[in-house]
Amino acid sequence: MSKTAFRLNVNGQDYEVLVEPRKLLSDVIRDDIGLTGTHVGCEHGVCGACTVLIEGKPQRSCLVFAIQARGQSIRTIEDVADENGDYSTLQQMLHEEHGLQCGFCTPGIVLTMEAFLKSNPDPSEEEIREALSGNLCRCTGYQNIVKAVQKTILRGHEEDKEIASL
């Protein structure tokens, strides 16, 4: 089958790729672009490990053909910490609360919850768990992930207060 050349924008950078149209976005990000933080866990859209942000929205990269993502901005786990390598608040809280063990599901969880918190800044525990329910984790039992998300929210509130008091 013939390959097609096209450009993908990942983490603000353009990449020229030459792949078959059937190649999954998850595989292109990992194998052709070399960003291996996006993990492949099931290839049928259930486990959530491969979740990336496309135009800011969390999506399963195993259920998108790379060619479909031409012209769209894709963000992966490698772009969540800032350029100095400093964690986002959520990453910091996952670290402090022991919200990861083997870490294979972690990139999908970080991206899903970063996006979720942006559009739902003050969710209940039930809402957090619902948003998280599309990401399977076999190690943690989710409890410390939920705690980390809650602490991220609290931290956000504290920062808001600080700003307000300035």
Partner: peptide
Amino acid sequence: LLRKEDRRLLTGHGRFTDDIH
């Protein structure tokens, strides 16, 4: 002791079997 493994795993720089070519 906060985990030493976390940095690479949280930032997408873990190295799993499938990441090796």
